[in-house]
């Protein structure tokens, strides 16, 4: 009886969580015509890619997708390049200033994006970076960096220092010990940090919208055309933005608890 009640609750919550995703998928794969019907059918009656292809062929959507991809990948590379060494330092050394440094990271995480974006737009205008994917990349890297440092630190902490010491006892240089012993073990965790960074960048709207005019990322493009675009366009846009999230969570399921568990420290 108790087990049954448990399942009822779980199924009810699952329906609440899944229904919107089902409906946006349904809407995205309905023809333009069937979206104008009322009442809307709750099961696919006339599956069509018309709405989705209409969205994709709208001005700026493909370009926005490409920009989003570029910004996301560049952000991942830059954030790891800067964040990985810092994460290693935090994990392995009890240096003076370690505590203040971690507080500094936490503090930057509390700064709203909007506070940075408006002045950054002005700064980028004078440096010629305004309206480029580089500008958005820099902003997104700054946003992702504290989390990257904290996640990679947690990853490196999980590889015991004794392993590195053992490698050195048996003749490895510090660099060899890092490359041969630490990196292979840290790789899955670092990949997790990379995916996390990518999704953060993919999802970020406000900063990207403020820092660009023509070189919009996909969400910025959707946002800026929101008020005058037809419903079908908005539904297809919603679907396009949701799909990576489904993939992301599927890949990252194993790491979610670790990630949010550790960033709390």
């Amino acid at each position: 009886m108790r087990r049954f009640a448990l399942q009822v609750f779980c199924v009810a919550i699952s329906l609440f969580m899944a229904a919107p995703i089902y409906l946006i998928t349904l809407a995205a794969f309905s023809s333009r015509e069937s979206l104008n019907e009322f009442p809307l059918p709750l099961v696919p009656t006339d599956p069509s890619t018309e709405t989705l292809s209409g969205f994709l062929s709208s001005t700026g959507v493909i370009a926005g997708g490409v920009n989003s991809l570029m910004v996301g990948l560049n952000t991942v590379v830059l954030a790891l390049l800067i964040g990985l060494p810092a994460g290693y330092a935090v994990a392995r050394y009890a240096f003076r200033g370690r505590q203040p440094y971690q507080l500094f990271l936490l503090l930057t995480r509390a700064l709203p994006i909007v506070v940075l974006s408006v002045p950054l737009a002005r700064i980028f205008l004078t440096t010629g970076l305004y309206d480029t994917t580089y500008a958005v990349t820099l902003l997104h890297t700054a946003l992702a960096l504290p989390t990257t440092v904290l996640i990679t630190a947690a990853v490196f902490v999980a590889v015991s220092p004794e392993q590195e010491e053992a490698a050195q006892i048996f003749g490895a240089s510090p660099v060899q010990a890092f490359v041969r012993i630490v990196m292979p073990q840290a790789l899955p965790g670092i990949a997790a940090a990379a995916v996390f960074t990518f999704v953060m960048s993919w999802n970020e709207v406000l900063g990207a919208a403020i820092l660009t005019l023509n070189q919009r990322t996909l969400p910025a493009q959707v946002l800026s055309t929101l008020s005058f675009s037809p419903l079908a366009y908005r539904f297809a846009g919603g679907f396009a933005l949701v799909v990576p999230a489904l993939l992301f969570i599927a890949i990252m399921r194993k790491y979610l608890l670790n990630m949010w568990g550790t960033t709390l420290k």
Partner: peptide, 9 residues
Amino acid sequence: FQSYAIFPH
């Protein structure tokens, strides 16, 4: 080593 420190990979 106390923890053995053998390389898991």
